[in-house]
Design a protein around this nucleic acid. Structure first.
Length: 762
DNA sequence: TAACACTTGTTTTTT
DNA sequence: ACAAGTGTTA
């Protein structure tokens, strides 16, 4: 039983055994992070912690599931059933449902996915008669998301001077109004987006100390996986829960933080010590996965980043061979090289297909690779294109199911009120929507009684509406007596969806039908599994919660067959393969064009490259092409400057490779200048949470980091690595917006963002 | 309202 | 190249 301790190395074991306070485990790539987390939980169980007192937060359902299985194999299976283990979103939506009476939402709230919330943003932009070229829905959506991740409600957003100023400069001064309406619409629809789940949890814990105390009491140990990818809202939830006992155990690798565009904040990890004063830090530095050459090459790459926790990852495996770098003339030839390489390696080394992964920066690159693999009869699985639950036919039926549980769900109403066609067109829907907005009620309320909200409709339309609402009410009745799968079939048949699918005899049509069948099977599986576990949560609501928080990662392709893997580098995080081929290693692609203006973004791209390399156990091969077809054009491309970041001794350039001009065209050099001139991407400062523990929103400006954090004042003589020496004339702004006007001896007067300028006092 | 031609914008995406 | 969205017809 206690044998598991012998399966750990010294630092792993120390981390597992240390129980006296906050613990940060800095786990290098391949250093046994999951193993430590698993055994930590097993150890807690063995030392007397009841399973339901342990809260373990992961980032994917898949990770949670796998960890549960591993714990079950070390302890008892029934014990793991009562562990609180899952993603932030699934755990806290569960808690929010349970504590619904203390929130503004009903227990059956709907979860809007990214597409739903984008549609809503789009609709609001249209209603406000704003130009959607200026107010790009995706951009507005991510601003709202960022605000929520920083725990900023629309009111705080409106009152924040920095943000308003920034929005003004970006020509989108009405963003706060969109946010306000968006928020209101979600509330009326009884729907939360992903970010709202975390925001509402924070509000719940802020305003209801008794509720917070209850969970503080229950969760005696809190563990977080992939801590480098948590955002501010998540950090604060965890911090609140651990406030009393300080039994927190987090694991992460700052070098693998690659989701900042989703709000992940690496500072959570870098500043763990400040947030948890008596914390103990363990470093796992021995890599068990890769050859020495791969680990050393990856180390030499990541050394080029400025912000990181110092650690020395090493391997005691074989030395291994150097990273091969191959050049091609076209993307077509590149794919061809990859396919023949795989064949060669299989012949000479006795590898199977499943030992290979081809990793790329963007999904768009998969197409040509697929084509060539097919031609050369190499079996493959492509991950991460369109996820099952994003498919139209699935979303349609799910929309009906969502409406049954919560008819106020505006996005679902709009999706299916005229699908299948029942003569309720856009004009009618628009009338209903604007009446709902005016009366500040849900769309459904207006649909139920149009005359009450004085919506002018003719008799014909009225009849069609009545038929629709009657149908939905029938579905709601059926939900009381049918299982989830039965109901889905009933809905398919009676809504007319089944007819549409059955009539479509095209290839795509039959595959859509298959998908729906698969969904219905997933529904009965869901019920069966839950019942086998002794769980009573088998209602439609329970299924929808599960579905809305499920992703592509959770849908395993046919993993039993021998195929190579093709996926983006993001999707490959946490996985490992004997042989990894990284393709498209070119400037503008990897690092992405979008990032090269911003040094922080370039660092993230470099971490992404680090992730890619460290997936490899035995061999890593990198390819780039001199020409690449992109966006309808063939363009010349140059090998990525990241190649220069890896020490040459770890690389093996094929003869054809023309070395990139080493260090000459370093993107950051030029980029820093550009960045200094530009505004930072988003001026959301992460509020320092000590002040915010009591009041996260308060409709005021979140506290700023003082300018002095940069340790500069007017009059200081400074040095800049491009502009040389100069004197600070003036400082303005705070936090990430802090700027300095500097008079340089040789370069004249410049206005620099301190965040990027890295001025040295002399 | 459905079918069509034309314009537009194309990173990554755990939940 | 291609998908998604917009505008124009019947």
């Amino acid at each position: 039983m206690n044998d598991y301790l012998n399966q750990l190395n010294d630092s792993q074991r120390e981390a597992v055994l240390y129980e006296d306070g906050p613990t940060l485990v800095v786990a290098g790539a391949g250093s046994g992070k999951t193993r430590v987390l698993t055994y930590k939980i097993a150890h807690l169980l063995n030392s007397g912690y009841q399973p339901h007192t342990i809260l373990a937060l992961t980032f994917t359902n898949k990770a949670a599931r796998e960890m549960k299985q591993r714990i079950a194999s070390v302890t008892d299976e029934y014990v793991t059933r009562y562990l609180w283990m899952g993603t932030f979103h699934s755990i806290f939506s569960r808690i929010l449902r349970r504590e619904a009476e203390h929130t503004d939402y009903a227990p059956d709230f709907t979860i809007y996915d990214a597409a739903d919330s984008k549609n809503l943003v789009k609709a609001i932009i249209k209603e406000l008669q704003l130009d959607d070229k200026t107010y790009r829905p995706g951009m507005i959506q991510s601003r709202i998301s960022n605000a929520k991740n920083s725990l900023m409600t629309w009111n705080a957003y409106r009152n924040n001077e920095n943000i308003r100023k920034y929005d003004g400069k970006s020509n989108v001064p009405e963003t706060y109004e969109i946010y306000k309406r968006y928020q209101n619409r979600c509330l009326n629809a009884g729907a939360m987006d992903f970010d709202e789940i975390l925001l509402q949890t924070n509000i719940l814990f802020r305003d209801h100390s008794d509720v917070l105390a209850k969970y503080q009491e229950q969760f005696r140990y809190v563990l977080v996986d992939e801590y480098q990818d948590t955002n501010f809202a998540q950090h604060l939830i965890v911090k609140r829960l651990c406030e009393k006992r300080q039994r927190i155990f987090v694991v992460g690798d700052d070098a693998q933080s690659i989701y900042s565009f989703r709000g992940a904040n690496i500072d959570n990890m870098l500043r763990f010590q400040e947030n948890y004063s008596d914390c103990k830090i363990f470093k796992l530095e021995r890599n068990y996965r890769s050859t020495q050459n791969i680990v050393d090459a990856a180390n030499s790459l990541i050394k080029n980043n400025t912000e990181q926790i110092r650690k020395t990852v090493y391997s005691e495996n074989d030395k291994g061979s150097k990273i091969k770098v191959l050049q091609s003339y076209s993307d077509y030839e590149e794919a061809y090289i990859v396919s023949s390489l795989i064949k060669d390696m299989m012949l000479s080394n006795d590898y199977s297909y499943e030992d290979f992964a081809v990793l790329y920066r963007t999904n768009a690159q998969s197409r040509i690779l697929e084509e060539i693999m097919r031609k050369n009869a190499i079996p493959y699985n492509v991950y991460g294109s369109q996820s099952f639950y994003q498919r139209k036919e699935i979303k349609d039926i799910i929309a009906y199911m969502r409406l049954i549980v919560n008819p106020n769900d505006e996005e679902s109403v709009k999706r299916i009120i005229n699908y299948p066609v029942r003569g309720i067109g856009d004009t009618t829907v628009d009338k209903f929507v604007s009446a709902a907005v005016t009366a500040n009620v849900s769309l459904w309320s207006v649909i139920l009684s149009p005359e009450q909200y004085s919506v002018p409709i003719n008799k014909g339309t009225e009849l069609k509406i009545l038929k629709f609402t009657a149908m939905m009410e029938d579905f709601q009745e059926q939900n009381k007596i049918m299982s989830v799968a039965e109901l889905a079939m009933y809905v398919m048949k009676n809504s007319g969806l089944a007819n549409i699918l059955n009539d479509d005899i095209s290839v795509e049509g039959t595959s859509r039908l298959d998908n729906v069948k698969e969904l219905i099977k997933a529904m009965s599986d869901f019920v069966n599994v839950r019942q086998a576990e002794g769980s009573e949560n088998i209602s439609l609501t329970d299924f929808l919660i599960e579905v809305s928080l499920m992703t592509d990662q959770d849908n395993n392709k046919d993993e039993n067959t021998d195929k190579i893997t093709m996926m983006t580098v993001h999707a490959a995080k946490g996985l490992e393969f004997k042989n990894v081929i990284i393709v498209g290693m070119e400037n503008g692609l990897f690092p992405s064009q979008m990032s090269i203006e911003n040094p922080r973004a370039v660092e993230e791209e470099r971490r992404l490259f680090y992730v890619a390399i460290t997936r490899a156990k035995e061999n890593c091969i990198i390819t780039y092409s001199k020409n690449r077809f992109r966006n309808g054009q063939t363009n010349r491309s140059t090998p990525s400057s990241f190649l220069c970041d890896i020490e040459e001794k770890y690389l093996n350039f094929a003869e054809t490779v023309e070395l990139p001009t080493r260090k000459a065209e370093y993107p950051e050099r030029n980029a820093s200048i550009a960045a200094a001139r530009r505004q930072p991407s988003i001026p959301f400062t992460q509020p320092s949470d000590n002040k915010n523990l009591k009041k996260i929103d308060a409709d005021t400006n979140p506290p700023e980091k003082p300018t002095s954090a940069f340790g500069l004042k007017a009059g200081d003589k400074v040095e800049h690595y491009i502009f040389g020496r100069g004197e600070i004339l003036e400082l303005e702004g705070t936090g990430d917006n802090a700027k300095a006007t500097v008079l340089f001896d040789n370069s004249g007067q410049k206005n620099l963002l301190l965040k990027f300028a890295k001025l040295k006092v002399i």
